[in-house]
Amino acid sequence: MAYTPQYGPGKSIVAENRRKQMNPSVKLEKIRNVTDEDIVMILGHRAPGQAYPSAHPPLAEQGEPDCPIRKIVTPTEGAKAGDRVRYIQFADSMYNAPSQPYQRTYTECYRYRGIDPGTLSGRQIVETRERDLEKISADLINTNLFDPARVGIRGATVHGHSLRLAEDGMMFDMLQRCVLEGGSVKYVKDQIGVPLDRKVDVGKPMDDAWLKANTTMFHSLVGTAFRDDAEYVEYVQRIHSLRTKYGFMPVE
């Protein structure tokens, strides 16, 4: 019998959203249209229009050793060209942000190749070859994984995930990389905090109803409470019990 991944337990809307994001056969919903040039500016790794700096010669030129694994695995475009490895990092507010660090890592691992995600409590970084990164970043920013107010693109000084929101609904950012102007969020600094030559518009913040319906985070005060999803609680308790009793080799 062919194995069909379930992606995750739970009957709540949060669980359903988690499954939708992870399942690569579900197309991510495109919500905004931030241009490639704007994404390059926010990332801050190279100037828009600049050629991709390389870490090694293109694979076709450097002569690959005779290796069975290299024959099986097709290199990504960035690897083929010898691009540098660069990153994008997100901080997600616990107030109903559309995604969250663990979720992002699962989602990216199911959907993209040649990536190296790093998961932390309040932020998630993904590293990959530069031109692949720009494509992945466009997906991560333009779709329902992103909200301009509750998600921040922050390479360093990321503090904000677990803090109260500001009066205007923006997540706290001590570097104030993005500001709400005329109902639209504009990046005034790149992800590490260097001021940009021009403001980069990433669109209007989504409303509270949309965030509550599309979040992948449980929150008992502003969203769906974890305890309301009995199936999820049962699953987590079972894993906890098996891990406690049997360590890394659970046997029932």
Binding site: G155, A156, L163, M174, Q176, V188, I192, G193
Partner: peptide
Amino acid sequence: PSIPQLVPYGPARGLPNPLS
């Protein structure tokens, strides 16, 4: 939470941190 006058961490550390 603190709002620093200079960027405290990362590659931009030490640069001024202008706020709007």
